[in-house]
Computed example of a mutant assay.
Amino acid sequence: MNSDQLLRENAALRERLSREEQQGREYLETLERQRAEFLGTVSQELRAPLTSIKGSAAALLRTPSTLDAAEVQQFLRIIDSQADYILDLIGGLLDAARIDAGVLSVSPEPSDPALLVERAVGAFRDGGGRENVRVELPGDLPLVLADRRRVEQALINLLSNAARHSAESSAIRVRAVAEGVHVAISVADDGVGVAPERLPYLFGRVFRGED
Rank of each mutant, 00 (worst) to 15 (best):
G40K: 14
N10D: 03
F203W: 15
E152C: 01
I99G: 04
I79V: 13
E15S: 07
A58Q: 15
I156G: 00
V151W: 02
R62K: 14
D100I: 11
R35P: 02
I90Q: 15
S52N: 04
F124A: 08
R14W: 00
V151I: 12
V181E: 10
E20I: 11
V194I: 12
L104C: 12
L115Y: 01
V183W: 03
A69W: 09
D80K: 15
G193M: 09
L137Q: 04
R173G: 02
E136C: 03
Q22S: 11
A11G: 02
R16E: 14
R62M: 10
P196D: 04
S52L: 04
R47P: 01
E109P: 03
L94V: 09
G128V: 06
P196M: 03
R164L: 07
T51H: 14
S169N: 08
I86P: 01
D140G: 03
A101E: 15
R198P: 05
P113H: 01
V183A: 00
S81K: 04
L50A: 09
M1T: 10
L61Y: 09
G127T: 07
P138F: 06
G128A: 12
Q5A: 13
V183P: 04
Y27H: 15
A154P: 03
R35G: 04
E15W: 05
F124C: 00
S18R: 07
E109K: 11
R164E: 09
N2H: 09
F207R: 03
G92Q: 11
S170V: 02
P64D: 12
N2Y: 10
V206H: 09
L202V: 06
L94T: 10
P110Y: 13
Y201M: 14
A96F: 13
P64Q: 13
L50E: 01
P108W: 12
G102S: 09
E21C: 07
G128L: 05
A114D: 00
T66K: 14
A12G: 06
R164T: 02
A97Y: 11
L145E: 11
R19E: 12
S3F: 05
P49Q: 09
V117W: 00
S166H: 01
N161G: 06
S111C: 12
K54E: 13
E118G: 04
G180R: 09
S65V: 14
T63E: 15
G180A: 01
E32C: 08
D126E: 06
E21W: 06
D189E: 08
D190T: 00
E210A: 09
K54Q: 15
G193L: 07
H182P: 00
L93D: 00
E37I: 01
G193A: 06
G191P: 01
A96V: 13
A57Y: 06
S169E: 03
S105C: 03
N10Q: 12
R8K: 12
A97D: 13
D140A: 07
A120D: 00
A101W: 15
D88A: 04
S111P: 02
V133D: 05
T66M: 10
P138G: 00
G128R: 01
S111G: 14
